[in-house]
Simulated assay, not measured.
Amino acid sequence: MKKNCLIPNSIFLAACCLAATTVFTSCNDNKEKDGETGILRPIAENITGKWNMEESHRKQDDKWVEDLIPEGEGHTYTLRTDGTALSAFTAPDGYTKLNVGEWKVDEATGKLTLGTMTVDVLSLDATSLVMGHDEARDSETGEIMQGEFRWTFARMDESQKTLAEQLVGKWILSKSYEKKNGEWVENSGGLPDEGWHLYRANGTFTAYSRTGENEFTSDTNWVVNCTTGEVRWTAESGQSSTATVTIEADGTLSVFYANSFDPVTGQSVAGEFKDVMVRAQE
């Protein structure tokens, strides 16, 4: 019988690919380790950083049973020192969704609040975190289950950003190209006077363009496949569109797509197109 992974029932997970070189949170004189529970204290000072879920367990017949994480699925949290937390949920189909919320710790009770979810910190050291809760969400069916659950996380290198994390921010349209006879040819005609994309850490996206006094704004949700670079934008109506993106060595963002709108004819033109975007200065 197939077992689905049971994940924390968090506001974050209603919402990638991580690289190596582990960074450890150091201990100083006022960060002592609790000898009985194996918890570095103060928890709030030792829990910041990026965590990747490695194992999921539930209590069954008074024994801990592992719920295998489906292949391709992933869960990470980045707990920042400013009290915000970035979560990333990668579905088995490879698409990663980001979400953001607040986190806090009750040092007296050892409880960690992530968004609307409060869990028990069962173990915490320089490289691993174990949290427990009395309910979980089935990653495939979405069903909320009651019981005893715990999840083991490993510390990751926060400086290594996934494609999803790198996309967050505002990107300004710089140039547009069309492939003709196997070569990319710059297409200056028909470009808007102003155009940009805004990827937010809460999983929402805005595209804006202006030509003269005519403005166009589109608000959608976004996810990205960190391996293939395919971005999927989905409107509230359920209608979706896709493109392939690449962040180049010079820091620019290339957006590849197969259909372009011709403002002269008002028709969609099929072909190979590429927009080059630069990150807006903060």
Results as ranks from 00 to 15, higher is better:
Gly115Cys: 04
Ile144Val: 15
Ser174Val: 14
Thr90Ile: 03
Gly49Ser: 07
Asn99Ile: 01
Asn46Ile: 00
Lys59Met: 14
Glu143Ala: 15
Lys50Leu: 09
Thr48Leu: 07
Leu173His: 04
Gly49Glu: 06
Asn181Met: 05
Gly110Val: 01
Phe89His: 13
Val100Arg: 13
Thr81Glu: 09
Trp151Thr: 01
Asn181Asp: 10
Ala108Arg: 15
Ser174Thr: 11
Glu66Tyr: 07
Lys97Asp: 02
Glu183Phe: 04
Leu122Met: 09
Thr76Asp: 03
Leu68Ala: 12
Lys63Gly: 02
Thr141Ser: 14
Thr96Tyr: 09
Lys59Phe: 10
Trp103Asp: 09
Gly182Arg: 09
Ser87Glu: 03
Ser174Asn: 11
Trp51Glu: 01
Pro70Tyr: 02
Trp151Leu: 00
Val130Arg: 15
Gln166Phe: 03
Lys175Thr: 03
Thr76Ala: 13
Met117Ser: 14
Val119Leu: 11
Glu102Gln: 15
Gly101Arg: 05
Glu148Lys: 15
Met156Ile: 04
Thr118Arg: 08
Glu143Asp: 14
Thr152Arg: 13
Asp120Gly: 09
Tyr95Leu: 06
Lys111Val: 03
Asp62Ser: 12
Thr90Val: 07
Asp157Ala: 13
Thr109Ile: 00
Thr81Gly: 11
Thr48Ile: 11
Asp138Met: 03
Ile172Arg: 11
Asp62Met: 13
Ser139Phe: 02
Glu107Gly: 02
Asp138Pro: 12
His133Asp: 13
Ser176Gly: 15
Thr116Val: 09
Arg80Glu: 00
Gly74Thr: 12
Leu114Trp: 01
Met131Pro: 07
Glu143Phe: 12
Gly94Lys: 03
Tyr77Trp: 07
Gly169Leu: 04
Asn181Lys: 09
Ser139Tyr: 00
Glu54His: 08
Gly132Lys: 02
Glu178Val: 13
Leu173Lys: 08
Asp134Ile: 13
Ser123Phe: 04
Asp67Ile: 06
Asp62Lys: 15
Ala88Tyr: 00
Leu122Gly: 09
Lys180Thr: 00
Ala108Tyr: 10
Leu114Cys: 07
Ala164Tyr: 04
Trp64Ile: 11
Glu107Asp: 04
Val105Met: 10
Trp184Cys: 10
His133Lys: 12
Asp62Gln: 14
Thr118Glu: 02
His133Ile: 11
Leu124Trp: 05
Lys97Pro: 01
Asp62Asn: 13
Gly132Ala: 05
Leu167Ile: 01
Thr127Met: 10
Thr78Pro: 01
Val119Met: 14
Val105Arg: 08
Ala88Gly: 08
Glu140Arg: 12
Lys161Glu: 04
Gly94Cys: 04
Gly147Asp: 06
Ala164Ser: 14
Lys170Ala: 05
Leu167Val: 03
Tyr177Gln: 08
Tyr95Arg: 10
Thr76Leu: 05
Phe89Gln: 13
